[in-house]
């Protein structure tokens, strides 16, 4: 990660690292960028920007460490620090939703009362677009942890490094994100008639 001491690579080594360690992750990077920006062109620009930065700062990458996590961290920082500010689109972040949920009792109890009627078999019948819409409707902080953990399979430790937050915060944010996602999926299941209104 960036905190580590720099290594000075030769030009040949730089290209080797770039091609062999960075480029294989381009599709997960593009998917991550798309789930952050929700726009294909913006995602392409964000990935391109990330790879250019990765090459520019390649001396701060330690060979043999987790290149995917290193790249995801750059992409996340580019999105937060640069891209979102430049974007014509206002950030689709509802911080009131984030804050109110962080501060709610429900966030601490773990099991939301509203999601108890959602069952695995109902979720299995949902189609991909509905799942994507539910995920995309989450505030970006919550969306990111679900993508990193459930889709990309990063460990809590890797996520803590990518997001620059303590592991405890990773756990609690992930927990809250999953509760919110469950609630969104429950609404879809209800709309489809899998969940009946109680009399």
């Amino acid at each position: 990660m960036a905190e580590q001491a720099n290594t000075t690579y030769t030009e040949r080594e730089k290209y080797y690292i770039f091609n062999e360690e960075f480029m294989p992750h381009i599709d997960p990077m593009y998917n991550f960028a798309y789930r952050l920006t929700l726009d294909e062109d913006d995602a392409k620009d964000l990935v391109q920007d990330t790879y250019l930065k990765a090459f520019r700062f390649i001396n701060s990458f330690q060979k043999g460490t987790n290149a995917k996590a290193w790249l995801f961290r750059i992409l996340k920082n580019s999105f937060i620090n640069d891209f979102r500010k430049k974007s014509k689109q206002p950030a689709k972040v509802d911080y009131s939703e984030v804050e109110s949920f962080y501060n709610s009792d429900e966030a601490e109890t773990g099991v939301t009362t509203t999601t108890t009627d959602l069952r695995a078999e109902m979720v299995q019948d949902l189609i991909g677009d509905e799942v994507a819409t539910a995920l995309n409707s989450l505030a970006v902080d919550f969306r990111i942890v679900i993508i990193l953990c459930d889709i990309e399979g990063f460990t809590y430790e890797e996520m803590a490094r990518i997001l620059d937050i303590p592991i405890g915060t990773v756990r609690s944010r992930l927990h809250r994100a999953r509760n919110l996602l469950k609630e969104k999926l429950r609404l879809y299941a209800k709309k489809m008639g899998y969940i009946k209104e109680k009399e």
Binding site: E40, L126, I127, G128, V131, D150, I151
Partner: peptide, 16 residues
């Protein structure tokens, strides 16, 4: 488990 599976397998993966 079911939610994790739909996130992994049902969301369309995009390629550059």
């Amino acid at each position: 488990v079911a939610i994790r599976k739909i996130l992994q397998y049902k969301i369309t993966k995009k390629c550059m």
